[in-house]
Write a protein that binds this DNA or RNA. Structure first.
Lengths: 130, 130
DNA sequence: CTTGACCTTCCAGCGACTGGAACCCTTATG
DNA sequence: CATAAGGGTTCCAGTCGCTGGAAGGTCAAG
């Protein structure tokens, strides 16, 4: 199948699929005419990557996960380790965002939001000693 | 003051400060020798940007906030609007991450994490029909 | 034969820096 | 006075994960 169909089947834009070949993530065969030819296995891999990216795994994580996906003798512990690392990153990011949220919400709540210049948000950003 | 001191005072790396000049965010004067010269106002602005970036505002948001910071006749409503947009983005991002977290945690909880190849995480990423 | 949809390659750009090379300026010390 | 250290300057390239666009090749239908 050509790249357009692979795109439909995998849910990835053709551009992205070409990019994945560029970085040797999913490398298809080539037809006589130079067109990329995707077999069922390639499409499975693309879908796999699509889902993993959708869960926020980095492309490098996807590369590692793909090679485990393909490895009949993988240890599930290796997969779990990657996923747990990602979970930790997610938790960190959520904590960071919640801290932003708290600070910002506090500032917003104290701002009148009218036509006057006085603004606790600006004051907060300018710093404690202003 | 030179860029190194401005860096210390603002908490920003010198490279970043040069970059901010490049994009016309905070543009210092120049001395005879071609060195950047930062006055107190410049340092205030740099610190302002440092804090705003620290709360996750984009550089373009910072540009808008800076111009309001400098505008004696600003309406606090304008500041509040920017902050509220950012709050909405933060909330969206948190929701997205929590969704990732939920799915991933579910998969991780069901994975033995041993030396055997069977792995619900891989299966989950491969898709429902595999 | 032409149209249009597909495919190809390559180059550039996003955001927000960051690293490095190659070079200039200033200050302290032998 | 020479020199070395520790500033400063510019410009170019790379990060990550695509995405857009230009210029052209291929293919199936009318």
């Amino acid at each position: 199948m050509n790249i357009g169909d692979a795109a439909k089947q995998s849910g990835l834009p053709a551009k992205t699929i070409r990019y994945y070949e560029d970085i040797s993530l999913v490398v298809p065969a080539r037809g006589e005419n130079g067109y990329r030819v995707y077999g069922p296995d390639d499409v499975h891999k693309l879908r796999f990557v699509q889902r993993a990216r959708g869960l926020g795994f980095s492309v490098e994580d996807c590369r590692a996960l793909l090679s485990l996906y393909e490895d009949e003798n993988r240890a599930s512990a290796d997969v779990k380790a990657i996923a747990q690392e990602r979970l930790a990153e997610i938790a960190d990011k959520i904590a960071e965002l919640k801290a932003f949220q708290k600070t910002l919400k506090h500032l917003v709540d104290h701002c009148h939001g009218d036509q006057r210049p006085n603004c606790p948000i600006i004051d907060g950003l300018a710093g404690p000693d202003h």
